[in-house]
Every structure is written in C-alpha cells, then in structure tokens.
Design a protein around this nucleic acid. Structure first.
Lengths: 251, 251
DNA sequence: CGGATTTCAATCAAAATCCGTCAAAATCAT
DNA sequence: ATGATTTTGACGGATTTTGATTGAAATCCG
C-alpha cells in the first residue's frame, strides 16, 4: 500500500473512533507493527494525533480533547478570535468553518448582531443561545470527534449558498497552500470557498510549515489571513507575496 | 484496553453518575482493582475527580449541577423514551424530530448501534459523542427557542432523504389529527412524514384533546403511537379507529 | 472498646509495549 | 540496468503497564 494512503487511513480510523490500538491498526492495514509505529510517530509529529501507549488518540481539532482538560491554555487562539471578531461589522453574514480557532472566533462574536452560517456543532451550540445572532446550520453526516457536518448533504447545502465572507481554519499551511487532514472535510471546505466572496483564514503560527495529508487550496485563493505574532518574517513574506492580506495579532 | 481510553471511560462514568464505586468500575471495565486504583489516583491528580473511600466522585466542571442530577425523577417522558428505544433494532435508521419527548428517546438510544437523522440541536449534541451512532444532521435556520433546524434548507435536505421510520412529537392531538405551534415547524414535519415509510408519534397523554395553532396531519397518517397509560379509553378508541397501532406504556 | 471487614498502598514478577538497529525490499534517478 | 535512497519488516533489549499479593490503615458493628 502507498505510504500516504495508509497514513490517511490510519488518521481516519483514529478520527472516527477516538482511540485505536496499535494491534488493531496492524491487522486492519496488513502492515507490520514497525511500519504502523512509524506512521503514528509521523502523525504525532504533525500534531494530528497523540500517541499513547498501545495505540493512538485523536487530537487534531477535537470536540473534547482528553489531553486539553488538564491545562486549558489557548491564549493565542483566544486573541486571534477576539481580533477577528473586531473586524466584523454588525449586520454582516459570515460563514464559519469548524475548528478550535474558529470556535474562539465564535466565542468572541457573542453579543454582536450577525447572521452566522456554520457546519460546526460546537459553534452552533455556542451561538444558538444568542438572541442577537441568526444562526443557519449546514447539515450533513456529523463527523465524530470534531462535530462538523460533512458529506454530500453538506456540500449540496453549501452549493446553494452565497455569502460575502467565509472564516476558515487550516490543519497546515505551507508555501504550496492550505492543507487539512481529511478529504471529506477538504471537499466541504472547497465548497465553502466557492460559496464565499472573501476567504479569511485564521491560524496560529504553529500551523505554518506544517503539512497535512490533503491539499485544500493555494495561498492565492485566500483573501486575508489572521495569525498570531509568532509568525516568522520569512513566512510573512511568503504570505504577502501570494497576494494575501496579512493581519498579525500580538500575543 | 488502551490506558487513556480506559481513563476516559472512567471519567465519563463518574461524570455521568456523580459517584461510582471502585468495585463497579472494576467489573464494568474488566480491569484489575490495582489498575483502576492507579487510574483513579491519576485522575484525582489532575483534578478531574476526587477519590473517596470505596470509589470516586466527580469534581470537574459539570453541565448540570449535581443536585439536579440526583433528584431528577423518572418522568413519563423518560419511560416513553425507554420503551421506544426498546422497539428499535440495532442497525436501523431513524429520523428523529425535535422535542422534549423525542429527546428522551434519544437519551435511551445511547449505546445502541444506529443511524440517526435529526434536525434537533439538543439531540445532535447528545448523540454526537456516541461512537456507536452514526449521526446525520439536517441543516437549516436554527429556531432559537427549541434548537431545531427549519426553513427551506431543512426542507430541501429532507426532500432528498428516505428513511424507514420517523419518530415525531406533537404539540397537540385531537380526533382531527396532529397539531403543532409553528408553521415553519409543521412544514418541516410534513417533509419528514413524506420522507419516511412509517410514522411513529411519541406523546404523553396530556397532549390529547389539546389543539395548537397549525394543523400537521391526520391521525390516519400515523403508523404507531407510543403514549403513557394516562390515556383515557375514549382516546384509545379514537386512535385505534384511525388505524393507528397504539402502544401504551405503564407509568 | 475490640474484633471483623473493607479499603488502601506498596511491592514484585509477568506481560505488553516501545525504541533502535539492521538487512531486505521497493522505489527513484541517472 | 545500476546504484542511491527510501521504505519496510524483524529482532532484542529497555521501559511501562498490569494484576496478584501482602500487610497496614480505615471503617463498621456489636
């Protein structure tokens, strides 16, 4: 089996089940233990999973990450979220992608008068209570762990929409463009880009230089990026050269 | 079993019940006493639970206050929910309408292997975490009070679906048929009926004889009704005469 | 109070898992 | 085709986790 293909399969298995044992991966994939170990090591390295003794757990963009209950430190994301919220005018309509950073954006939108479209269950939960926000939910197959609606139903719904702005997250960003872990998700995000006139990407600086398994789009497709100040000068240059408006948030 | 998985499971059990004895954890998890002790020690260390003699209690942030959880009596709705869940076979696909009674049904579905389609945010929240349940969300304009997705988007999504069974709630039931309060909701529920081969209605007996603003459908459109035993004989007769299969639950 | 019972903590050997190394196999570039 | 590079699978020692045992501590009950 091809390397990337196998890794994608591993990632999907882990995403779907939350935990998968090494032994199960070995038997499911028909690869040797060593190989699976190396794959897990790699996926752990790019931050998509967390290795645990006996197997691996999902951490990517998770709804309730076990690990993160220990220490809640998300200041960068929080600040990015606040900054993005300030860029949005009352009365606007925005399309909000799933993800932990976009969730922080949603948190900061509380109280504003807006129309929000989203396929993320956690975001919907957060904003559903808000009388000032009109919320439109994109339906679909609810992907476990991350709680985003994907698949044909989601894609069909998005095809009918037209919004001035989408705010997206990314699993990884390189000079080639944006990446995400899961092909279903990427397909859905492509539709979001199509449905929107402007594409904003929120990301903490750790995402830069980190690839993920599936290519989403080129940097030039992005209108604006909002990143924390941990971003190196060389990355800033790359982003600006691609014609992306860059907003750097001090943390 | 993988270490973290087991610890997560322990945490969930304790979170769910408030307190769980060590012995119960041992039997439920099939791990040795020593192992469970070590896990409790760890979870206590990170502040998620508090060890007590003979078991452990939950201390983490709770969704519902502790008192509420203990005192909550088993209502009619809960019993109806349990009964309905028992009528459903593993592997089935069901469409679940929003509503407090259907939410109780969803609660009782936890742990079963099913495919569930719903437009209700509370139900989606409940089932999203369940690995055994494949969840499909119907999108749409999210109606603030009840948290159900309605409107054109929801209707279009439903038009493309075909499920063997829908489980619906009703605001009111008279000999004329079913009623609900809100015309957007009713329009959506009509699509649900169209999308399903069998229509099951769950209702507590207080709903009978009570009308509501908008007419939904005639009694004869319903395949089966599940009601608590508070239902009078005359109502039973009316329901049966309309060709509805009636299941009465003792409370 | 004092003995019986339960629960706890510490210890230890066995089992499972991990890591590094290495050679075989596959893939790539020339 | 050939040599270089990457990927794979296997092996052995190191490490971690597990379950059983045992004596101490806490709790219960008469």
């Amino acid at each position: 089996m091809i390397l990337d293909q196998r890794r994608e399969e591993i990632l999907q298995l882990i995403e779907q089940h939350g935990f998968v044992s090494l032994q199960e991966l070995v038997t499911r994939l028909g690869a040797s233990e060593s190989t699976v170990r190396r794959d897990l090591e790699f996926l752990d390295g790019i931050g998509q999973i967390r290795r645990t003794r006996g197997g691996a757990a999902y951490t990517g963009e998770s709804l309730t990450p076990f690990e993160e209950r220990r220490v809640r430190e998300t200041t960068e994301k929080e600040k990015i979220g606040k900054a993005v919220a300030e860029l949005i005018q009352p009365g606007e309509t925005i399309l909000l992608d799933g993800g932990t950073t976009t969730l922080e954006v949603a948190r900061s939108l509380v109280g504003k008068r807006l129309q929000v479209v989203t396929n993320s269950l956690p975001i919907a939960n957060l904003l559903a209570q808000q009388a000032s926000i009109e919320l439109i939910l994109i339906g679909g197959y609810l992907y476990p762990r991350t709680g985003v609606a994907l698949g044909p139903l989601a894609e069909a719904s998005l095809a009918e929409l037209n919004v001035p702005r989408v705010i997206m997250s990314a699993g990884g960003i390189t000079e080639k463009g944006l990446f995400n872990s899961n092909s279903l998700l990427v397909e859905c995000e492509r539709r979001m880009i199509k449905a929107a006139e402007e594409v904003w990407v929120v990301a903490d600086s750790s995402k830069f230089g980190r690839s993920a398994l599936t290519f989403l789009c080129e940097l030039s497709s992005v209108t604006r990026m909002i990143v924390d100040s941990g971003l190196s000068d060389s990355w800033r240059e790359i982003v600006l050269k691609a014609g992306v408006e860059l907003t750097v948030i001090d943390v």
